[in-house]
Design a protein around this nucleic acid. Structure first.
Length: 479
RNA sequence: GCCUCCGUGGUCUAGAGGCCUAGGACACCGCCCUCUCAAGGCGGCAACACGGGUUCGAAUCCCGUCGGAGGUGCCA
């Protein structure tokens, strides 16, 4: 079978992590099977138009490396790929269903429906449309439609029997038709609902595998009823369990959860994000955790998909991101780090050397400023930072250490790490103190930080001689 | 409420009747290394939701319970 999958987002203005993962899986499956990956925009809700949303989708997919073979900006033989521009395809199909008795026009007002809904709710029942308009004679319906009366087109669900579908992951899912509501297919504004458009378009676009969230699990039987009414071949269904923020909530921008773009802006690498979310609900069946996109394409199989929801664990993403950063070619790391160095105001320092020191310690690029900004401006610090029992130092010991080190530093003319190291070590050995007893206070004195990317010698080098001496003097004066 | 689906450590998961004394990873804790912090090395804590079956044998199959999620929109 020629595999054709599609990612069908509605243009909301951002790419959620869950959506990206759905796109990833659809992409991976298509690539693994040497099939076709399609991008289709589901914008049939005209009340939810977001300017610039289309571009955001294109951009996110490009960022993630998910290239599509067909789509609004990619062309293809089954376009247009934007549902609002496929208007002409829907109504005729709906009329065909009416002919076949599988659908019917409905003139009920929203008010009447609202009342019925409330009444049902009061009785503790599930609301079901009462097929009130099913009995309207065809000619009367035609007259009312021609007269301009607003109407929708509803799917005419069987009253008895079973409806079902087969899911690659969930198996055979069956429901009583009696529990099915007469879903609106065409809205009063003439636009199709998702429930109709997805069936028409998946068929017209020859989609072989429908991969989408489990929120459609319970409506899938209705879609099959539609396929049957048309006499169309049904696609393979692959419903994907959601990505959760915690055990009770889906990941959502509304609740402040990061979108793909947010993560990128925070300084996560798109490769790391893609790698991480690939494993959020899918397993290769072995212990491999690091995958390039190409490796994912080769390894991806539907059987590795998980049926239960997965909680997004940012800590693990961060860990994976730090691994990716650590493995970046140095120059690439440097280029990516520069803007953050700039933000921290440390461009005057030897940024190349700085980057060597930070690369192995950068978990997320956005955390660089906090890591290095002490180089730009000496922070105020609590003298208690000098106290470290393992280093056997405290403020009093620090005073001695700084006194020892000050003339040594002043005497170093060749301000590079090696000469600094040799001079300092010689002086320490001479004094009979331990390395830590001297170097710890020095580092604190010139950085004001408990933890720094590099030891006293590296920091001193980065600061330069004048600034280092200035900081040593200022620190000593406070002791 | 009703319908559907799901249920292995805190988290992501491996596991398709004996290979399980339940494996890997993140997180956490400890030790080593070390001029700090990381990284690295070594070690540790920690799970088959519960109850019944089936079977010589069950995390794996069946039933029930409980827990969670989704649906119940002229949203997708």
């Amino acid at each position: 079978m020629n595999v054709r999958t599609r990612f069908a987002p509605s243009p909301t203005g951002y790419m959620h992590v869950g959506g990206l993962r759905t796109a990833l899986y659809a992409y991976l499956y298509a690539r693994h099977e040497k099939g076709t990956f399609i991008l289709r925009i589901e914008d049939t809700d005209q009340e939810r138009e977001v300017p610039g949303a289309l571009e955001k989708i294109y951009e996110s997919l490009r960022e993630a490396g998910l290239s599509y073979d067909e789509g609004p900006d990619a062309g293809g033989d089954f376009g247009p790929y934007i549902q609002s521009r496929r208007q002409a395809a829907y109504l005729p199909h709906a009329l065909e269903l009416i002919e076949k008795g599988a659908a019917y026009p409905c003139f009920c007002t929203k008010e009447r429906l609202e009342k019925a809904r409330e009444a049902a709710e009061k009785k503790g029942e599930t609301f079901k449309y009462d097929k009130h308009c099913l009995g309207i004679p065809k000619d009367e319906a035609k007259r009312r439609i021609d007269a301009g009366e607003p109407y929708v087109i509803r799917q005419n669900m069987p009253v008895t029997g079973k409806a079902s579908f087969d899911d690659v992951l969930y198996g055979h899912v069956e429901v009583d038709c009696a529990t099915l509501d007469d879903t609106v297919l065409i809205k009063a504004d003439g636009m199709p609902t998702y429930n109709f458009a997805n069936v028409i378009d998946d068929h017209l676009m020859r989609v072989s595998h429908v991969m989408r969230g489990t929120e459609y699990l319970s409506s899938a039987p209705k879609y099959n009823l539609l396929y049957d009414a048309f006499g169309w071949e049904k696609p393979c269904y692959v419903h994907l369990a959601p990505v959760m923020a915690d055990a009770h909530r889906k990941l959502s921008k509304r609740h402040g959860d990061p979108t793909f773009e947010d993560l990128l802006n925070e300084g996560y690498l798109s490769e790391a994000i893609v790698n991480y979310i690939a494993l959020l609900g899918w397993s290769p069946g072995n212990d491999q955790e690091f995958f390039t996109l190409a490796e994912l394409e080769a390894a991806f199989q539907l059987k590795g998909l998980s049926k239960s929801p997965a909680i997004f664990d940012k800590d693990k993403l961060t860990w994976m991101n730090s691994e990716y950063i650590r493995n970046l070619p140095f120059d690439r790391y440097l280029a990516l780090a520069m803007p953050w160095f700039g933000q921290a105001g440390v461009l005057a320092a030897d940024t190349r050397r700085l980057a060597e020191l930070t690369q192995g310690r950068t978990e997320v690029f956005g955390r660089i400023p906090d890591m290095v900004d002490f180089l730009a401006a000496m922070p105020d610090f609590d003298p208690e930072l000098y106290s470290n029992k393992k280093m056997k130092t405290d403020p009093a010991a620090a005073k001695h250490a700084l006194a020892l080190v000050r003339p040594v530093l002043a005497a170093v003319d060749d301000w590079r790490e090696a000469p600094l190291h040799d001079a300092l070590m010689a002086a320490i050995a001479n004094s009979g103190m331990k390395n830590g007893q001297v170097l710890w206070p020095l580092r604190i004195a010139i950085s004001g930080r408990l933890a720094t990317p590099g030891g006293a010698i590296e920091i001193a080098y980065l600061l330069g001689k004048a600034e280092t001496l200035r900081r040593v003097d200022a620190a000593a004066a406070k002791l």
